[in-house]
Design a protein around this nucleic acid. Structure first.
Lengths: 129, 129
DNA sequence: GTATTATGCGTACATTTGTACTGGAGTCAA
DNA sequence: TTGACTCCAGTACAAATGTACGCATAATAC
């Protein structure tokens, strides 16, 4: 049932903002995005329309204003996106990616602790898979 | 000096094969790729030409046959690609991605050990950043 | 040598992506 | 009731992407 076309990079950005806001108008998303990069209102509008047509968001009119809300959970999209990347870039292997993340991008002390906690948890209840 | 245009998904796949083989003709790359998915010879050829024109590979003729070799290290491309993904999908935060990797994709027992080792190593010599 | 096969080059082309302008229609202030 | 705004739908359009066909030439097989 889940054959949505994949989201492009720019669309992902918009989707992320939408997840953050939960429910938002184009204007709100545009404002949020504008904080970090220059982007036209109409451009955001197009992305959101595409989000909807690709099945990643639902939308309705609240009076004059169109409201969007995500219809696919971030976890799902993340899984699909990351899986694809891991597939293409590492032939499906996860470890090299983690290695890269840990070694090449700074992992803060806090993050380290959290990671450890995660590993511990995993090791306890039936690890592997 | 490094303003290469980014590689597309399909190009990444080809690049990966090229890294693996170190030096290869279109035919070799095509054969390797064919193992996992149906793809036309000429298509691979186009990708490799694009790899070269984007500055990711060098090439020359060995007699009749054109040989390609990567001119950018995997680590570099991986960094650029992953950084971009992390930026767009997680707003720049690394931890959520790792969490996803560890929780949602099976990490084997072996991998776990390796990860731990990595963390240990990091913690020793000046951790953080 | 002549047919067959490999290769490389150029070209093509439909889609998707990134980005944005335009015009109409409601809304508010003066 | 005339601007000045705001918001939406539609359209536009160049560049990038995915995918491949066709032609010329060189290598091989008969």
């Amino acid at each position: 049932m889940g054959e949505r076309p994949a989201l492009s990079k720019a669309e992902l950005e918009v989707a992320r903002v939408l997840w953050e806001l939960g429910e938002a108008t184009v204007r709100q998303v545009h404002e949020t995005l504008s904080a970090s990069r220059k982007i036209d209102f109409a451009t955001v509008q197009t992305y959101m329309r595409r989000l909807e047509s690709k099945g990643y968001a639902r939308t309705w009119l609240d009076g004059r204003t169109r409201v969007y809300t995500p219809s696919v959970k971030p976890a799902t999209v993340i899984r699909e996106t990351v899986d694809d990347l891991v597939e293409r870039l590492f032939g499906g292997e996860t470890l090299p990616l983690m290695q890269h993340l840990i070694e090449d991008r700074g992992v803060s002390g806090e993050d380290l602790a959290q990671l450890r906690a995660l590993l511990d948890r995993l090791e306890e209840d039936g690890h592997g898979k």
